[in-house]
């Protein structure tokens, strides 16, 4: 059984079909990237999987169980957690408290165990020395890592990262790719969306490409990026 199955998922907003009959599956331990030009439907698709939105048609199965429409809290407790394009940290709480919220909520652990868990994930993302600072004092790269620690702290098996590398410089992108590979080594499954193609090439096992809400390609990253349909979606069509 696949960890996640997306079956014919469609989301309409009035006349606009943001996601149109999209199918794919995600296996345990995989790193899958969803890419596509602006407005392709990537964030909408992530929201549908994370329970922040419900599909107009189609279904989402997690470990064989339908989850579409459950709501983000229930989906999180089942084992799917998501970061946001703009990290949604609690600005006045300390960095450690932010991660603690994830650990307490996601797995309903006791306070002592959750604190331990939070400390471990903060060390893992390299923020141990910032643990007691208010989250609002963090730089953008640090906020992204704190957001990742919080999501990992929920104990989620499937981690959804929505443009977790936006605004990072080259070096920080390389560090983020290395960190996400370690997340996988710790047994987590990752689904990411990202504009930085070099990061995708260095990270993803498989890529699904969306354009105007439809899946136009799927496969290994280097092959997919050379697919004429994908090149056309990104660079535009020739006009006579």
């Amino acid at each position: 059984m696949s960890l996640l199955e997306v079956r014919g998922v469609t989301r309409r907003f009035g006349a606009l079909v943001a996601v149109n009959a999209v199918d794919f599956a995600l296996e345990e331990g995989e790193i899958l990237a969803i890419i596509g030009p602006n407005g392709a439907g990537k964030s909408t698709l992530f929201n549908l999987i994370a329970g922040l939105d419900r599909p107009s048609a189609g279904g989402v199965l997690y470990r064989g169980r339908p989850i579409a429409g459950l709501g983000p809290d229930a989906v999180c407790r089942l084992g799917i957690a998501k970061t946001f394009q703009i990290p949604q940290l609690f600005p006045r709480l300390t960095v450690a408290e932010n991660v603690l919220v994830g650990a307490l909520y996601g797995r309903g652990a006791g306070l002592a165990a959750a604190r331990r868990e939070a400390r471990e994930w903060l060390a893992f993302v390299g923020l141990a020395d910032k643990a007691e600072l208010p989250a609002e004092t963090l730089s953008v790269p640090e906020r992204r890592r704190a957001d990742l620690a919080r999501v990992l702290g929920t104990g989620a098996s499937l981690v959804l990262l929505d443009e977790n590398m936006a605004g990072l410089n080259q070096k920080e992108v390389e560090a983020a790719v290395a960190l996400l590979r370690q997340v996988r080594e710790r047994g987590r499954t990752l689904m990411v969306t990202e504009h930085i193609m070099r990061a995708i090439l260095g990270l993803a096992d498989r890529v699904v490409v969306l354009n105007y809400g439809e899946k136009i390609a799927e496969g290994r990253p280097d092959a997919v990026m050379r697919d004429p349909a994908v090149v056309k979606a990104y660079l535009g069509e020739a006009y006579g």
Partner: peptide, 9 residues
């Protein structure tokens, strides 16, 4: 280089 910049390959 243009495709390289857009798509990384």
């Amino acid at each position: 280089h243009v495709r390289l910049s857009y798509l990384g390959v």
